[in-house]
Amino acid sequence: MDVKAPHLSDEQKLPLLHNMDIVEPQKTLIHRAINQTCKSTAHLSNLLPTGTVLSFQILSPIFTNQGKCDDNPVTKLITLSLLSLCAASCFLLCFTDSFRDNKGNISYGFATCKGLWIIDGSATLPPELDAKYQLRFIDFMHAVMSILVFSAVALFDQNVVKCFFPSPSHEMRQILTALPVGIGVFCSMMFVAFPTRRHGIGFPLSTN
């Protein structure tokens, strides 16, 4: 007795890989969006003063006496010195870069108008390669934005806020809350729009 095969629709008659071809372009667009987001986040993390912020967060409770600067006026001066040193570190580190030679050795230096000045003098770059490390206007822009980002992080620190603003008014409290957020959003967009190509001291090294 012959058994007739059930009626199949046109879509069911197509090969199984046909549906995969339909979904693949959508997955590709999603993957591209995810990769672009990851790249943007990586550029942002490269420019944030992570090492300086870590040192600041460790020293902040000690230097500010846990925010009790009114007991000793010198404490406020010490806290201001800590903020100044960390801000200067954020500024200067934006002008550092690294060079990897053919043997894989890494040398650090400062970007100058003529090229990269190696700190320890262990390497000498050829003129055509040295020109790629010349100081540019965008380096100053990154340095200023790094200071702004650090300022936002410092304003989020309760020890610093209690030290300089022990009894803030309602308006001042709103400013201290909104200002760091505004600085962070603005600098984040600028960092993503104008990513850095430098891999200086305290920043991730290039994989190239």
Rank of each mutant, 00 (worst) to 15 (best):
L93A: 04
Q174L: 05
P6K: 12
F203Q: 14
K4N: 12
M20D: 10
F156G: 14
L125M: 13
K39C: 00
Q174E: 12
L8A: 11
S122Y: 02
T37H: 00
D157M: 08
Y108Q: 06
A111E: 13
G184L: 08
I175M: 10
V185R: 06
L85V: 10
T196S: 11
Y133V: 05
K39N: 05
C69A: 02
N105A: 06
V185E: 04
E11P: 06
V74N: 05
S81N: 07
L148C: 01
L135A: 11
V181W: 07
T112W: 12
I118T: 04
H142K: 10
L48F: 10
F91W: 03
H18G: 07
H18A: 10
A87K: 10
E171H: 04
S45N: 12
F99W: 10
G67R: 02
R32D: 08
V144D: 03
V23A: 15
L8S: 10
L135E: 06
A193V: 11
P168F: 03
S167V: 10
A88D: 04
A88R: 12
P168K: 10
K13D: 07
T37F: 00
L82H: 12
S169A: 09
F165L: 04
S167W: 07
S40E: 07
C86Y: 00
S9E: 02
A154H: 02
L155T: 03
L116W: 04
T37P: 02
P6R: 11
S89T: 10
M141D: 06
D120A: 02
Q57Y: 14
D157N: 15
Q57F: 09
C38P: 00
I30A: 12
F164V: 12
P166Y: 15
T37Y: 01
I62W: 11
F194V: 11
Q158C: 12
T124S: 13
L54G: 12
F56G: 09
C38K: 14
P127L: 07
A152G: 15
G200Y: 00
M190K: 14
A123T: 11
V161T: 15
R173D: 14
